[in-house]
Design a protein around this nucleic acid. Structure first.
Lengths: 340, 340
DNA sequence: ATGAAAGCGCTAACAG
DNA sequence: CTGTTAGCGCTTTCAT
């Protein structure tokens, strides 16, 4: 089952067998066929380790993300896979469960495995850790803004401006008392969304009212609970900007239970463009991010770095635009003119 | 950056450095500390290839599945990861896009990479291909029943009996005209669900009526379209058994558009227990499968095989039970007594 | 407790 | 076009 056995059985030297694999053009048609058929017969697969021990290239990239059960993450992953596949590269997958310690362990593991490069999604690493990575010459690309902005290669969407756009849209519809539902993870993401929210208010001259900010877990229950809290405290909001679709769904559910109509009584806007949003009633207006494209861009960037082999020193920041997908959960302009 | 450099800098032999890594107890405390600090200083990571060239163990398992953007798949993957992590094993991820050719290519790739084992989810391989795999001594476990039942190690849930249970439940509620929405992928899965549907009818003495079977794409639009077809043809069904939640959601959407109430006019039951099902109105009654546990079981089985190293020859079939999660989309018994 | 040397399976200069 | 030979970085006998 090794190259020697093949060589003996085929009556040629080890080198020739090796050449059939690596430089087939340099072997006579006859010998090649002969060797190939022996390989076939013996069911021979070259030992990958022995092969790569010299080149030190693994054709493996590591994909490190906070949650493999999150569709958004896997949409990005799909984009990455597309590119990796073209480059004949395989992906190793790690789930950090939103834990820095886990993340760092995965990274060290990938270094041990001599991965060609790393893609870190929603990374929680400190600037220091990022610097260490760079020193070790491990090519990497970040996806999604991180706590510690360093001089990294990164692909992200601008949460702040997209959130601002969403809230401005609500304001344009006539809303003044706009609540915001904010999650905890990932940290940066949420704080940027909150910034965007405040920007929109400021721009419109609407005073910021901290009691209209409700924090909760970033899922359906979280949105449900946060909305409940707002309602209990008798906040008279006419619109909710949920920083995730999951929370938006929870909010709609709570409102329904309290016999409040969406969008007539309260308009709701989400973030993420989950598939569900198109199924619930009313259909959810939401901010949509180009997940798949983020994956593509991140992977291409990574392979650029890998292939340039440390030649290029400037890092690249890619900002992709989010878009507001307008559906029924905020009502529509025409009808709202009657209302307001 | 190789062992030799470390050895020289530390003033010891290569062997000693190697021992510090592999049999630290056989090195004197002093030398060991000395070597370790040099490693640290030089930022040395042993070359994984060189290490494994002899042992021929990679600590990599391949995870080959039809769609990485499918939450159900990733829930299983999470279970697998849990176990793999314990075993200090990493996962390589492949997306076959429901294509046998892709699947086989991935498998061959993993063989080339000397993966320790493979987990094939919703595999489309032929019996022949499965046999080839076995001959090549590649440990593997299937998740989800396959077209070609062979004598394999496999973990699955019984679609047939679970579907039967679901349809029987509808019958018990008084329904006689029960339509079924069936997808195309994966093939076996759907045919089993259909069998279960027929079993339930037979058991209740209800004649099977082919016109109540509507096929469509296994997603929201598919369910929407299939239901539309049934409605167009004026089938007078009082219940729909959708073989996936996605189709069930599409069905509910269509019914809503046609001003038919769920569950009063038509009861709907789904399959998969997507998170969404708990958010739509009415909440979806559905068949739920223990995804995470399937992953756990599959991974454990795989590692048993790997560790037993071909000693054991009997294969194992693990069947996990699905459960019916009763919510509002079929009404509830008490109220239905009034209706029927 | 340590080192010299042989070899893991493969690739690539070098020679013919 | 083919074979000989010297490594790749590491682990592991076998001595000492």
């Amino acid at each position: 089952m090794n190259i020697k056995a093949v060589a003996e059985k085929a009556g040629v030297s080890i080198t020739t067998v090796s050449r059939v694999l690596n430089h087939p053009e340099s072997v006579s048609e006859k010998t090649r066929q002969q060797v190939l058929s022996v390989m076939e017969a013996m069911n021979y697969t070259p030992n990958w380790f022995a092969r790569n021990i010299q080149s030190n290239k693994t054709d493996i990239i590591g994909l490190i993300l906070p949650d493999i059960q999150d569709t958004a993450n896997m949409q990005i992953a799909k984009g990455i896979e597309e590119v990796a596949h073209q480059k004949n590269c395989d992906m190793m997958l790690f789930d950090t469960e939103y834990n820095v310690k886990n993340e760092w362990e995965c990274i060290e593991k990938m270094q041990g495995r001599q991965a060609d490069g790393l893609i870190l999604m929603s990374s929680l690493l400190s600037k220091q850790q990022l610097d260490t990575l760079r020193e070790k010459k491990m090519p990497y690309v970040l996806v999604g803004k991180t706590k510690s902005t360093s001089d990294d290669n990164i692909v992200y969407t601008d949460y702040e401006s997209a959130s601002q756009e969403a809230v401005s849209y609500l304001i344009k519809l006539g809303h003044k008392n706009i609540a915001v539902l904010t999650g905890k993870n990932p940290e940066v993401e949420n704080s940027e969304k909150l910034k965007g929210y405040r920007n929109a208010l400021r721009e419109a001259g609407i005073p910021y009212c901290p009691e209209l900010v409700a924090e909760g877990l970033n899922n359906i229950e979280g949105g449900f609970a946060a909305t409940g809290k707002l309602l209990d405290e008798k906040k008279k909001m006419t619109a909710i900007f949920a920083t995730s679709d999951a929370m938006a769904l929870g909010a709609m559910e709570k409102l329904k239970q309290m016999d409040m109509k969406v969008p007539e009584d309260v308009a709701v806007i989400g973030y993420d463009d989950l598939e569900v949003g198109a199924v619930v009633e009313p259909k959810l207006t939401t901010v949509t991010r180009p997940m798949y494209r983020m994956g593509l861009m991140a992977a291409r960037l990574l392979f650029d770095i890998i292939e340039d082999d440390g030649e290029i020193n400037e890092t690249q920041q890619v900002v992709l635009r989010s878009k507001l997908k307008i559906r029924k959960s905020c009502g529509n302009k025409d009808r709202l003119i009657e209302i307001w």
